[in-house]
Amino acid sequence: MTIGLNCVSAENNTLIMSSEVEEDELKIKNEEDRTGDLVGASEDGHYNISFDDGYNGYCINYGDEEATKGNNFIVKDTSEAINRQSKESIGNELKTFFVEYYDIAMQDTVKTQHIIWHFSDDFTGKRVDSKLMEEIKATSSQKIIPDHGAVKKINNTTEAVFDFEVLQSTNPGHQNFFAYKITYRDIVQAIINETNNNNSNLTNDTLKNESTPTTPENKTNTSENTPVIPKNKTENIKAQIKEDNTKNDISNENDSKDSKSHKSYLKKHVTGYNFIPALIILLLGTLLLVKYARD
């Protein structure tokens, strides 16, 4: 049975138009917490079949009994995907194939199944390009792809977020599956949301800094560090300035009155220098009278 995969299919993948950082982190945590959960096959088959947890999966046990709709599987992390000959984990190689070679993985579901069998069961066939296999192995050795949250730019407007898991069959002799889920999101909207989130954090930081007293260290760049004062605080400051000016006017008026009173006080207590000219005139007059009396 052949099942095609549309990159933006409403059935197998979800196209979202927003990307809040907190929501993405929560989704990743929720996916990681699903290890050990029980899920069921939504259809029969062995390649790119759907499961009731929203993932699609490819068989990683060539030759075993394929899944039947309703079969149960246990969620495992991708380290449980192994090569049945060497017993080594192939999880990162398969994740690398889906993320770094996205176009090839989405192009042909039969070819993708054969490539996966090459890693899990040393399968060879006309759809398995040995050169491509070596490239995937070399790339996977240089980078670890997480089970949840890997992001790849698809085009100028869209990026894909990947989730991976291994589904272990509860039926002996039945195939296990390497499963994936791709969520597509709009790049422009993601940038807008991230910018809004940063602006919100900046506003909160500014409000917190309003209560912090200015010190010589943070006076160095007042144009950048001066907090925005809310309207009600501005009105309170204006009222305070008016009150201070009124107090200053009263203080200046009192100072003026005190100054005048002080000058008057000093005038009253000047020593008798103003009576000297009168005494001299009186003395000269007396001498003249005595002189004329003798004559």
Rank of each mutant, 00 (worst) to 15 (best):
D186H: 04
Q113R: 09
K153L: 07
Q175M: 05
L266D: 07
E100A: 08
D249A: 01
I237C: 05
L289R: 09
I136L: 04
T96F: 06
I229A: 08
P213V: 13
F275N: 12
K242V: 08
T234A: 06
N248S: 04
T109L: 03
C59R: 01
I182E: 05
E65V: 14
Q107C: 07
E243L: 10
N196T: 11
E235V: 11
K291D: 11
D258L: 09
K143F: 12
R294F: 15
A10Y: 03
A160T: 00
H114F: 02
S256F: 14
Y273N: 05
F178S: 01
I74D: 00
I136A: 04
E25D: 10
D103K: 07
P172E: 11
I90T: 00
S120V: 10
Q168P: 06
H46T: 00
S19K: 10
M17W: 12
N155W: 09
Y47A: 04
S140C: 10
L132F: 02
G40M: 08
K76Y: 05
K76H: 06
Q142E: 15
T2E: 12
N197K: 14
Q142P: 06
E22V: 10
P227F: 01
E23K: 13
Q189I: 01
F119S: 01
E22T: 15
E43S: 03
Q107V: 05
L132M: 03
K268W: 02
R34K: 15
M17H: 15
A67V: 11
S200Y: 04
R185L: 07
N199P: 10
E100H: 08
A150C: 03
D244G: 11
K242N: 08
H148L: 00
D205C: 08
K208E: 07
N171M: 14
T183D: 05
Q175K: 02
L94M: 14
N156A: 12
A293V: 13
I144Y: 09
S256G: 08
N232C: 13
K233H: 01
I241T: 13
L26Q: 14
A160V: 01
S89I: 03
I104T: 11
T2G: 09
V166R: 03
A81L: 02
K257C: 02
C59A: 13
F164W: 09
T214H: 12
D103N: 02
E194Y: 08
D163V: 00
K260R: 14
D295M: 14
T2M: 06
T139L: 10
K247F: 12
Q107I: 00
Y55P: 01
L167P: 00
D255Y: 09
N218Y: 12
L5A: 08
Y265T: 14
N197Q: 15
E235C: 00
E11D: 08
